[in-house]
Nucleic acid binder design. Structure first.
Lengths: 136, 136
DNA sequence: GCACATAGTGAAGTACATACGCGAAATGGC
DNA sequence: GCCATTTCGCGTATGTACTTCACTATGTGC
């Protein structure tokens, strides 16, 4: 169960290197994968209030990772868009993740890895069930 | 990799029920396992600054989970000690954890579980190695 | 055109965590 | 015993993440 803690710590270490915090990195990650996104959509994706997204985006704008662009059809909304720097960081994060996974799972035998993944999958499924059973 | 996130969320749900936050629960958990502890020791165990421990303990004192007792030999130090309520909550947390584990791993075949644990252990070991290689 | 929902923000408040600095108490050398 | 140094907990100030409530500006249904 403590694997969890170490995984998180490692993730944070990675973020800190780029001058990002966990939350801001999460937001950047989301935009990296989905392209320009409204703050509303982000608040749902990250499961925090939209007000909070405003603050996170403020921070990322101030540090030059993203910009706020006008939405083409909805004048209320803004599209959070990656700057070149933001894109570069997103790519770096992606590569580091790949590398990281490779390090962790690298020398597993094929069948071994399969069993492991199957087991984790089983747990994941059950967890999702629990999460749904008591939605807060 | 997303298993991680769900695990954390579930943990927080559990905490929230008892009127605790993650950090405070972590502190309580530590005191529950190690008995009366100086704030200094807690700051090392939880890997946060001692100043922060002061704040967390303040909160737990205010809500009646712990008390500050005088250290028998060192008059500078205080011993963070569980109240009856604190002990009860600690025990509840422990039981819930057992229950939770049972739900997750309950119907695994014996050998299956062994392989899974072995695999996770392997990963854990490697993670610890990485963590040590770049100590922040 | 008006009621109503939606997108983002201002204000205020909580929790967590940090750094710096302080006073009180322990500790070690002499 | 006395002074220098270290250690323990806390005050102050700062920053980030997060929430709720209230508000403006804009889109939408009928």
């Amino acid at each position: 169960m403590e694997l969890n803690i170490l995984l998180n710590e490692d993730a944070e270490r990675g973020m800190a290197q780029s001058g990002l915090t966990t939350s801001r990195a999460g937001l950047l990650w989301e935009v990296f994968h989905h392209g320009p996104t409204t703050q509303r959509a982000l608040s749902e994706a990250l499961k925090v209030t939209s007000r909070n997204i405003t603050g996170l985006v403020d921070g990322l704008v101030a540090t030059g990772f993203v910009t706020r662009e006008a939405h083409p059809t909805d004048r209320r909304a803004t599209l959070v868009t990656l700057t070149e720097h933001g894109k570069a960081i997103g790519l770096t994060m992606f590569q580091q993740q790949q590398e990281f996974a490779a390090t962790l799972f690298g020398d597993f035998a094929e069948g071994e890895l399969d069993t492991l993944v199957a087991g984790l999958d089983k747990i994941l499924t059950r967890l999702r069930g629990l999460a749904q059973a008591q939605p807060d």
